[in-house]
Design a protein around this nucleic acid. Structure first.
Lengths: 189, 189
DNA sequence: GTGCGATTCCTAATCCATTTAGGCAAATAA
DNA sequence: TTATTTGCCTAAATGGATTAGGAATCGCAC
């Protein structure tokens, strides 16, 4: 019987594709086995558990996202950087809804720390170098930006802004304008 | 054999409590049956499916949230209203993490429309009456506020801001200050 | 109070996902 | 080639979701 060539990486990758197709919470060890035309138990040589699979998909998504963001930030600053960074999030979410959902998966703190978690915060900080903020305001701003990106895209993906004018794209642009204005004019406590 | 007195409402209520205790995605028809000391199949006279149960919990949470928000907004305006509204969200999420998670559940559009979905947007609009914004900027602002509230609280609940200074409460306050400043000084396109 | 229909809950069975244990065969190394 | 490791399999236990059909209980009319 020919071997299927399973590895943890291939399984994670295929799991990510599956997530994009059927939704992250529909990702199941069984479905993955079907996709490789292999018996379910075989996957357990490569994955600790169903939870393990999901965690790996989440970490993959975080890495991909961080890679894209790093790319987008190169050579940009100020509002240009802000916009580019934000659009990486939004575009990624639209291209890979399942992965994006995965990226919001509750990770055990150790897994999050080991993975790309820190890179994201670091890049958000980098964007703020283009604005005149010092600690602790810079941290507050990092958290606010993260909240807006995560929140807006989540609501949009959940269908919150469809079926109503104005266009979501328009609101997104204006939200970025607003954030830029806010960062240039951050209020004193 | 004495009857347990099951009704759809009691099941939904108990499901919400269960969600707060063990997490929304751990809410299961079986667990609910155990809680009522009743066989699983019995619940299917009151619930269409597991999905149905989750949808009901989500709608319950949205209603509770809308009720609290309406209460908090009464007699307030401007930043006062903004802060009160925002704190309702955050407090509710901390008191009832499972329900809050449920409120972010992907609802079929019909269920969302039938439920309290519209009340939330309406109240957010009401807050903005205290600021000088006209359409379509008001809608953009509604979406931005919703994104921040949802995003911040989600990230906070996921543990994103713990284990690092400054305190999350501090960032939350400063974020509200910032939003207030932004709304008073909304940038032109 | 007795009887009747409707409702509530149960038994039983099926299906599907997760997970572990132990075995045979294929790839790799000696 | 033989020995060893590794990859995938069969088999089986556990537990949730769901449906069909049966029995107990309740509310109400007589």
């Amino acid at each position: 019987m020919a071997r299927a060539g399973l590895t943890t990486e291939r399984l994670t990758q295929a799991g990510a594709e599956l997530a994009d197709e059927v939704g992250f919470d529909q990702v199941t060890v069984s479905a993955l086995a079907r996709r490789f035309d292999v018996k379910v138990a075989s996957l357990y040589s490569h994955l600790k558990s169903s939870q393990d699979l999901k965690t790996r998909i989440a970490l993959l998504a975080l890495e991909e996202l961080a890679d894209r963001a790093a790319d987008a930030l190169a050579g940009r600053s100020g509002k240009d950087a802000l916009t580019a960074f934000a659009n990486v999030y939004r575009d990624y979410a639209h291209e890979h809804p399942g992965r994006f959902d995965a990226a919001r998966f509750r990770l055990d703190p150790e897994a999050a720390a080991a993975g790309a978690g820190g890179r994201h915060a670091q890049m958000t900080r980098a964007i703020l170098r283009g604005y005149d903020l010092s600690e602790p305001d810079r941290t507050h701003a990092v958290r606010l930006l993260g909240s807006v990106f995560h929140g807006y895209v989540s609501l949009e993906l959940a269908g919150g802004f469809s079926h109503s004018a104005p266009d979501s794209q328009e609101s997104w642009s204006r939200a970025l304008d607003a954030l830029d204005a806010l960062l240039r004019n951050w209020p004193a406590p």
